[in-house]
């Protein structure tokens, strides 16, 4: 009898723990699902904004470019990407060097994405799926199609930041990550400059960023 009561107690505790864990998992799942939904909405909203700018023929090309650059600077997390693309040299640089690099990198980032996406006029974006990755960022998978649908690009948007304040961390086109490519570009420069972040900032400035 005592054994039965003990078993019942153990089972009750097990059930309570199971229920508790289940509700924690369900809550986590719900939160994760909400995060991926808002990330997907963010991508859609940014794409609508970009397409509206690119297809606006009532303004001069220079004005359109300026608006597009502005949209990139608003929607990308430039300070975080700046840190990412110069690892491991970031940690070795002083706070002043880091700050100077972040200031010039924002312009470089805007140039990179303006060059990459400025020709995407008339193309359409279709979101396929969204999921959270191990680092907490959300990967939104999409395709971008030409107006005739004859050419399709697989584009992954890496979104980070709290709900309502999302930013892009990277854009991966047909498997090629923009941040990873930039990182290798800068790493090559920094290897030749003894890892001096100021030299990289000066070179980016000299290139018109």
């Amino acid at each position: 009898m005592r054994q039965t009561k003990a078993s019942a107690s153990v089972r009750w505790i097990q059930n309570a723990v199971f229920a508790g864990l289940t509700s924690v998992f369900l809550f986590t799942d719900t939160v994760a699902a909400a995060a991926t939904d808002t990330a997907a909405s963010f991508v859609q909203k940014a794409a609508v904004e970009a397409i509206a700018i690119l297809s606006n023929r009532s303004i001069e090309d220079s004005e359109r470019r300026a608006q597009f650059r502005g949209a990139i600077l608003r929607n990308f997390d430039a300070p975080a990407i700046a840190q990412l693309v110069v690892e491991p040299y970031w940690a070795r640089a002083s706070a002043d060097q880091q700050s100077r690099f972040q200031a010039v990198f924002a312009g470089a980032l805007a140039n990179i994405y303006t060059e990459r996406f400025y020709d995407y006029d008339g193309q359409s974006l279709q979101i396929k799926s969204a999921h959270a990755d191990a680092s907490g960022a959300t990967i939104v998978r999409s395709t971008i199609s030409t107006p005739t649908g004859s050419t399709v690009y697989d584009v992954d948007w890496i979104v980070t930041g709290p709900s309502g304040r999302e930013k892009f961390l990277d854009v991966v086109i047909d498997g090629v990550s923009t941040s990873a490519t930039t990182k290798q570009d800068y790493a090559s420069f920094l290897r030749g400059a003894n890892g001096n972040l100021d030299a990289l900032s000066a070179a980016l400035k000299a290139k018109g960023n």
């Binding site: 990459r116 498997g175 990873a180 490519t181 930039t182 800068y186 090559s188 990289l200 070179a203």
Partner: peptide, 27 residues
């Protein structure tokens, strides 16, 4: 475009090539 937006177009292309090939093997 890659050349215009890179400090070292060679290194950027090498990285892009490797990523693209790795992705093609997965698809």
């Amino acid at each position: 475009k890659l050349d215009r937006t890179s400090l070292d177009g060679y290194a950027a292309l090498r990285s892009a090539y490797r990523q693209y090939e790795a992705n093609e093997l997965k698809g």
